[in-house]
């Protein structure tokens, strides 16, 4: 449907039916202070009785409201169709901070997890930024990012409005004054998901399975603990975000089930890249990128032996957690708190 079709529809169909067909329409009307309108009337009929001065405050006259409203409906139905599908991204290297060539050509596909390791300041965040902005040899690293094997067209690069990539990091917090339920419903609405109740329910369940301490649907998101917040962010990103690529910058020690978190993201066919100092996360990845001085020096496939060691590392990790909790509770740490295998 094109804009003129919407004009025809808006001009002839009672507003009540329009509101049912296009759930977002109510927001448009609220934005120009048209609330509690007679649903049996059409928009032009309603506008007849609206003060011209009030519309003028919004820079509109009666006719313009109809065009503007139609353009709004058209834009949002277009947005509904433009959900991205991606079969791969490719990172092509160029040079490190010293100008030495970076020998890198790495393709990542949905369901794959790549970790990025290296000292602080080595360029892990930079690599994630290059991916986020679909760098075309125009960032300090001169890397190039390909989507589905080819150069993404400029329009796409500029118009996706961040829709290709979702980001998670340690510094992120919730600032909305909403309960968990309201928050998830609001996000679902912005994604124009028709049956939001089911996905809200699922998101909540998954978030709670990741969090150490449980929370309820009527908790305010701003009152969640660090671990609960991260859990909700991860569940929400996996299930409610449309972005096919997820970039994670140092999300460690967040008091959540980290392995499970990665499984959930991967299970939803996302491309996941994460910079990390956490051995559990680094080794859970299918591959890891090693960065030094601004350039990728190695891409290592996680070996079978490394995978074998994962459960031992988990044991060490949970031993540490026991000690951490003892300290939190104000207890004294004893020799017994430290497991046997550390003795060797």
């Amino acid at each position: 449907m094109k804009a003129p079709d919407y004009v025809a529809e808006v001009s002839s169909v009672p507003i009540g039916d329009i509101l049912r067909r296009y759930p977002l329409a109510v927001d448009y009307l609220a934005n120009i202070r048209l609330v509690g309108v007679d649903e049996t009337k059409t928009l032009p009929e309603i506008l007849e009785n609206v003060d011209e001065d009030m519309l003028e405050e919004f820079g509109l006259d009666r006719e313009e409201v109809i065009f503007h409203f139609s353009a709004f409906l058209e834009a949002f139905s277009r947005m509904e169709e433009s959900i991205e599908t991606i079969s791969s991204i490719t990172i092509l290297g160029w040079r490190d901070k010293a100008g030495r060539p970076e020998m890198l050509e790495l393709t990542v596909t949905p369901g794959e997890v790549v970790s990025i390791v290296g000292p602080t300041g080595s360029g892990k965040s930079r690599l994630l930024e290059d991916i986020e902005c679909l760098a075309q040899r125009d960032t300090p690293t001169a890397r190039q990012i390909l989507i589905n094997g080819s150069v993404p067209d400029l329009d796409k690069r500029f118009s996706t409005g961040g829709k290709l990539v979702a980001q998670l990091s340690q510094n992120m917090n919730f600032v909305m004054d909403l309960t968990v339920q309201e928050f998830l419903e609001m996000h679902a609405k912005s994604r124009m998901i028709p049956d939001s109740a089911a996905v809200v329910e699922k998101c909540f369940a998954v978030a709670n399975s990741l969090a150490g301490e449980k929370f309820t649907l009527d908790t305010k998101v701003t009152q969640l603990s660090g671990g609960q917040s991260r859990s909700l962010m991860i569940a929400d990103t996996a299930l409610l975000s449309s972005s096919p690529i997820i970039l994670i910058d140092e999300l460690e020690n967040a008091g959540i089930d980290r392995r499970e978190a990665i499984e959930i993201l991967v299970g939803n066919e996302k491309i996941v890249l994460m910079s990390t100092h956490d051995p559990l996360l680094a080794l859970r990845a299918d591959k890891r990128i090693v960065i030094r001085n601004g350039g990728v020096t190695k891409v290592i496939e996680t070996t079978a032996e490394e995978e074998q060691t994962l459960h031992k590392i988990e044991a060490i990790d949970s031993a540490l957690l026991v000690i951490r909790n003892q300290l939190r509770r104000g207890e004294i740490v004893t020799e017994e708190s430290i497991p046997e295998f550390q003795e060797r």
Partner: peptide
């Protein structure tokens, strides 16, 4: 955007588009 969640960024951008779709 570095200090809020991905979901809040998405909802915020959505609210912007509701006001200025072009």
């Amino acid at each position: 955007g570095d200090v809020v969640s991905q979901a809040e960024r998405e909802v915020f951008a959505f609210n912007i588009r509701e006001v200025n779709a072009s």
